[in-house]
Design a protein around this nucleic acid. Structure first.
Lengths: 150, 150
DNA sequence: CCTGCGGTCTGTAGCGACTACAGGGTCAAG
DNA sequence: CTTGACCCTGTAGTCGCTACAGACCGCAGG
């Protein structure tokens, strides 16, 4: 219980608990250079402080937005090294936004086709399953769901 | 060049070319049991026929719809073993459709936040980068983009 | 003092779905 | 008979973790 909350010396489990990260993920982020190696106690235990907590929070929030670890590394470099990081950070975010939108587009196409085949399957009593027939037929058409021919 | 197009004996590269699969993926799908091991020539070369092409097409089309290999294995089992696979296939597709919709929801949340921070960054000349501030601030709010409080 | 239990440490293996290579064998053309 | 393009196998790498195994440490109770 005694979380030694004043000043210094969070253990790994405590840092994980505070940030919501998985225990092993903390060590992993250190290994891949997203979290700086913290000082150690005499017996080798990691000892984190507020700066580590803040940085780990940054990484976790960036993950929530779908940034890859490589992109997060780039963001952290900007934070650490640039005086005016906004333009470059904005660029990274804009690129990532485009990726996210592309994924949404892909998934919506999947959703449309799946919705249609599930509907065609109806109560599932048909001898010729429309889903299976669709998968055996050639190329799944871009305009499979003809509701909006664009 | 001579593709020996009549009847039998597609080589791996030829099958890959016809279906659009990556050359190595063909071998991988065999290894993980999605594609049955084809007969071999005297010297050990794989020799595919139309049934293989059809089955590989099925797998690739299912992948296009975002089914995992495990789900595709289940679909193929239905095709191979069930007389009336439609109800079960429909179930698999419906479950997968729900997954796809959940992913879309996640990505849309990301998109909304990213769009907002990129907009806030404006021309990127701000000394306090809104993107970076957002990532350092606490929890990214569900209602971050308050454009549609709904 | 010993014992036990929980924490920490390290390194490594596993996931899914490939992809790419190394190090060989085979085949047909020139 | 050599060249080059194909094929074979097995294995390692990718990404972002997660979960062990086996060892060590620290503290409480008896």
């Amino acid at each position: 219980m005694s979380a030694s909350k004043s000043s210094k010396g969070l253990q790994r489990a405590e840092l994980a608990r505070r940030t919501g990260a998985n225990l092993e993920t903390v060590r992993y982020y250190e290994k891949v250079g997203l979290l700086p190696p913290p000082p150690r106690t005499a017996s080798g235990y990691r000892s984190y402080d507020g700066a580590h907590e803040r940085r780990l929070g940054f990484v976790l929030r960036a993950r929530e937005l779908g940034f890859s670890l490589e992109e997060i590394r780039a963001l952290l470099r900007l934070v650490d090294e640039r005086e005016q990081p906004c333009a470059e950070a904005r660029g990274l975010a804009a690129t990532h936004l485009a990726d996210v939108r592309a994924k949404i587009t892909d998934l919506k196409r999947m959703e449309r086709v799946l919705k249609d085949v599930v509907a065609q399957c109806g109560d599932g009593m048909r001898p010729d399953c429309p889903l299976i027939e669709t998968l055996f037929r050639e190329k799944i058409d871009k305009e499979f769901g003809a509701s909006k021919p664009q």
